[in-house]
Amino acid sequence: MSIYRIAHLSDPHLPPPAGAFGWKDVFTKRLLSRIAWRKKRKVHRPEVLAALIADLKAAAPDHVVISGDLTNFASHTEIAAATAWLKSLGSERDFTVSPGNHDALAGAGGPERFAPWTPWLGDAGETVFPQVRLRGPAAIFNLCSAVPTAPHLATGRLGNDQLQRLDAALADPAYADRFRIVVLHHPPHKGAVSKRKALDDQEALRAVLAKHGADLILHGHAHEALVGSVPGPNGSAIPVLGVPSASAKPSGHSPARWHSIEIEDHQARIVVRGIEPGREGLAELGRYSLADLT
């Protein structure tokens, strides 16, 4: 059986285009985010993201997963600019996007806010989550934990309806022989981020995963390289992997990194590529088997 490669990157935080912040936004949470961006723009650099994307394209993965925070203020102008960026990467069928909290920073709630990204959310042609994409030997369960929150909070929530649909999807025997990957922005395990950034209904998600299992969970949000696990059925453990921001320069933060997930015979190896401080460009930082984590 040939190797199927899925690339994972997250939190690109694309530079806000002109007009991304308007006078009406001073009365919303976007004002706080705009103030914070003055500092963050020194960390999230477009040239770093361009180098990472070039490195990723050179590796020619079969599919790419982006786990959220393409934008900063979630304005219509930013959503449009992020849509143009996604189109520049290649065919939408080769990319899956799971929205992040910055993509839902302010404005009306509900997944319909991501309508411009519909082709990258799944194959159903709609904004309902979860969506399941079948790619090679994998079944990718794309969740959305992005919801508007109060100032100074960056929490996420899946909601009962989405969790019930995930419960049914993971129980579907049509996916039983697939390598099942669950994708969301917020980490699903305890202690990965502070309470003000955590997934509010993570216990309910873990209950679904403990019931039906999965082979791998991918997330972003923490801006760090994280390795963890959540309980699976019958005492098993489901590995959880997070990556740093794809645009972060090495300046006291975890520098930009992406993972290549190489699936073969229902097993997976992880190849880690990213910026190594003191070295120009991106390089391989290591590789390991998922079996080593559980």
Rank of each mutant, 00 (worst) to 15 (best):
A210H: 10
R38A: 02
R273G: 00
A51Q: 13
A115I: 12
G159I: 05
G90D: 12
P16Q: 11
V65P: 13
G19H: 09
V48F: 04
V208Q: 01
Y175F: 15
K197R: 06
P116V: 04
R133C: 10
D25L: 12
R93T: 09
V240W: 05
P148I: 02
E92F: 11
K197M: 10
G159K: 12
W120P: 04
K87E: 13
S245K: 00
A192F: 02
P119Q: 02
L199A: 01
R157Y: 09
P46H: 01
K211E: 15
V128C: 12
V64H: 12
W85F: 13
H152Y: 15
A115P: 14
C144V: 05
R180C: 07
R5I: 11
A18G: 14
L14M: 12
A248F: 08
S245V: 00
H223E: 03
A7H: 07
D11N: 09
A237V: 06
W117E: 09
A80D: 13
E92A: 15
L14R: 06
A176Q: 15
V230I: 07
K24C: 03
S229P: 03
G252A: 10
G122Y: 08
H223W: 04
F141T: 09
R196L: 11
R133G: 05
L226Q: 15
S98A: 15
Q131K: 10
A210S: 13
L163M: 08
S251T: 10
L290K: 06
A58F: 07
D200M: 05
P233T: 04
V230A: 08
T149G: 05
H13D: 00
R5G: 11
D265W: 03
F129M: 14
S254Q: 09
A214W: 02
T77G: 10
A84I: 11
T71G: 07
R196W: 07
G281V: 05
G122N: 02
D11W: 01
T77S: 13
L121K: 04
R279L: 09
A222P: 08
H185P: 01
F114N: 03
W117D: 02
A225S: 13
P111A: 12
L9V: 10
L216H: 01
K42G: 14
S67Y: 11
R269K: 15
A58N: 14
G274P: 05
P116M: 14
V182H: 01
G235V: 06
L293E: 09
S88A: 09
E264A: 15
I261P: 05
H266Q: 14
K24W: 11
F114H: 03
H63M: 12
L285E: 03
I6N: 08
L293P: 00
V64G: 11
H63D: 06
A210W: 07
L241Y: 05
D55Y: 03
D11S: 05
I238K: 06
H253F: 09
S260Q: 14
S2W: 04
L70P: 08
A74T: 08
R38D: 00
V230N: 03
R38H: 10
V243G: 01
D69M: 05
S251H: 14
D200N: 06
D161V: 13
V240I: 04
P119I: 06
E203K: 15
F21L: 14
